[in-house]
Amino acid sequence: MDAATYVGTQRRKFLSRERVVKWAPLLVLIVLVLLFPLFEWLEDARAGDDHVYLLDSRFFSIRNAARIFISAAPALMVAIGVTFIIIMGSIDLSMEGTVSVCAVVFAFAFIAWGGTLLSWAWLALPVAVLVGAFMGFVNGLVHIKLKIPSFMASLAMGFVGTGLALLLTGGDRIRVEDPIFRSLLTERWFNFPVMCYVAFVFLLIAWFIQSRTTLGRNFYAVGGGEELAHASGLNVERVRLMGFTLAGAFFAVGALLAVGRIGIAETATGNNFMFVSITAVVVGGTALWGGIGGVWNTLVGVLIVNVINNGMVVIGLPGWVQDGTLGLLVIAAVVLSTDRKSVSFVK
């Protein structure tokens, strides 16, 4: 073997498929964060204005970072929920319905029990999470007991959820105006609103579940090879059911943050969560086939999606570009994370 080919094989090993797939999302995020200020710089340079790259950027500023984190926080919760499901190799498309129902139930309970966090109305928070967990549980039951593929079971349950939310509200919007609850958005610590820290705490909880509990390890076992997991004595059905329940609970947390952000609970609260969260999970590097990825990947994915959405607005691209970009992004992400040698055919 001569020196040139030796270096060649070494480099190929250094840039092995696994390593590229593992670090690509973070790389993409960094490139995006540096790219949008570049556009701003180009624009100002063309106009002949003074503009120091990054320093004078409207995008690359604490204020804008807070804006990105605020819009990312509810989506992160929902995306974390679905991460567990995707790690198992299933999928959950019910989030729009679940988020709407949880938001509406929370708002009704909160107002009925006093309308301020200082009264018994704080109970509405755990109640909403329980409702979310219950909906996830039903979702899981439909998927497992009726043996319906999860994407279809959860899609149908999502429709039921949206219908239920519409039934509860009758199409009305419910305002949640308690200043203490709204301090999720209004109260800022170190420039970032409280909801960002709340989201971070739940991210840590999710990370703990994923890496330090039997349940978390079992998600990977089921996703890595269900037959093997079953053969080694794992109660796969139970793990799946727990996964869907857990996901429902996280959807509910997302719903609470979404209500905290805009102060309104309605049927439309859940809109767009499905596509954004699925995009975020796969763009973050969690493979649709299961067994790979985790909540940190999801954090990177959610940030990528929100940086793109925010950056496009900052550099003045029209709104319609976003949907198409996300669509292409999700295809690209799935293509990159798929090892073609191991997949025989897809439906």
Binding site: F151, L288, L326, G327, V330, V334
Partner: peptide
């Protein structure tokens, strides 16, 4: 591109 149809059609 081996993308499951429910994701590919959603994206398209």
């Amino acid at each position: 591109l081996y993308v499951p149809s429910f994701v590919s059609t959603l994206a398209v």
